[in-house]
């Protein structure tokens, strides 16, 4: 079963050649998620033996973010969570595009969160027990955590919102790996045709998840639509300002 087309993956992982993961098939590594049963809560806390290449976050930032999303949507008896969905990969990629305006907030927020973990709980966030990690996150959520630029609660909401997107959004954007988010909430998948019989099967709980991304078909133009590229706003600002703009 292909999560994201292999071509897209290889294109996205274009930096594989310069990342020291010698001998590892990057595409396969992305596609392989731990089985739900094996990924108990404790397991997500062991130090990662191998980190996926990141496009925008530093290794240190990535470690903290991975640990945070793993607590926001934990892997537990209800199945895999945000770590298995690769929500952090979604966020990392988006920080170079649609979420670029949040890049600075992530750098500052993740650093502040880790500093707060060390000063208040005595260890890097990623090294704390799940219970301590949760207690740190409660402080961050309620705005009680110190050392943040502005309110820690705002940073918490930012990460939580993006973690949702990275867990329940289309896998095309790098998250919801193996459709773990959609399976969790019982979404049966992208269908370009839903017949009356499909609806009846859904109502009888007989409609099986199809594990399709919107872009698995060749029906749709990908990523940024033509309208965005040709948008008048950009054109008019370009013509009004410098040619190099936009």
């Amino acid at each position: 079963m292909s999560v994201i087309s292999r071509r897209d993956l290889l294109k996205r992982a274009g930096l594989a050649a310069v990342v020291p993961v010698a001998g590892v098939d990057v595409a396969r590594a992305f596609e392989t998620a731990p089985p739900a049963a094996a990924a108990g809560p404790a397991e997500s806390l062991v130090a990662q033996p191998q980190r996926e290449p990141r496009e925008h976050l530093t290794a240190a930032e990535s470690d903290v973010l991975e640990a945070v999303v793993a607590r926001l949507i934990p892997s537990d008896e209800h199945g895999p969570g945000a770590k298995e969905a690769k929500a952090a990969r979604y966020i990392d990629r988006a920080l170079g595009g649609a979420l670029a305006s949040s890049r600075q907030a992530y750098g500052a927020g993740l650093a502040a969160l880790d500093r707060y973990a060390r000063s208040s709980r005595g260890a890097a966030f990623a090294q704390l027990s799940p219970a301590d990690q949760d207690s740190v996150l409660i402080d961050v959520e309620t705005g009680a955590a110190t050392g943040f630029t502005g309110s820690s609660a705002a940073f918490f909401n930012l990460v939580r919102t993006h973690t949702w997107q990275g867990t329940f959004g289309d896998p095309y954007y790098g998250g919801n790996a193996n459709f773990v988010g959609w399976d969790l909430i019982g979404y049966p998948g992208i269908r370009t045709v839903v017949s009356a019989e499909d609806q009846r099967r859904l109502e009888r709980h007989e409609l099986k998840p199809n594990h399709q991304s919107a872009y698995d078909t060749e029906m749709f133009n990908k990523a940024t639509a033509r309208a965005d590229e040709e948008g008048l706003l950009r054109r008019s600002s370009r013509s009004a300002g410098s040619k190099a703009g936009a």
Binding site: Q165, G169, A214, Y215, F220, A225, R226, A227, E230, L232
Partner: peptide, 27 residues
């Protein structure tokens, strides 16, 4: 705006609803 076609209308919640693609463009 421009001409769009059915190929531009992917069932993509991130683009359409989270990022407001239909409105976040153009004039």
């Amino acid at each position: 705006g421009t001409w769009l076609s059915k190929r531009d209308f992917a069932p993509d919640e991130i683009r359409n609803n989270v990022r407001d693609w239909p409105m976040a463009v153009q004039k």
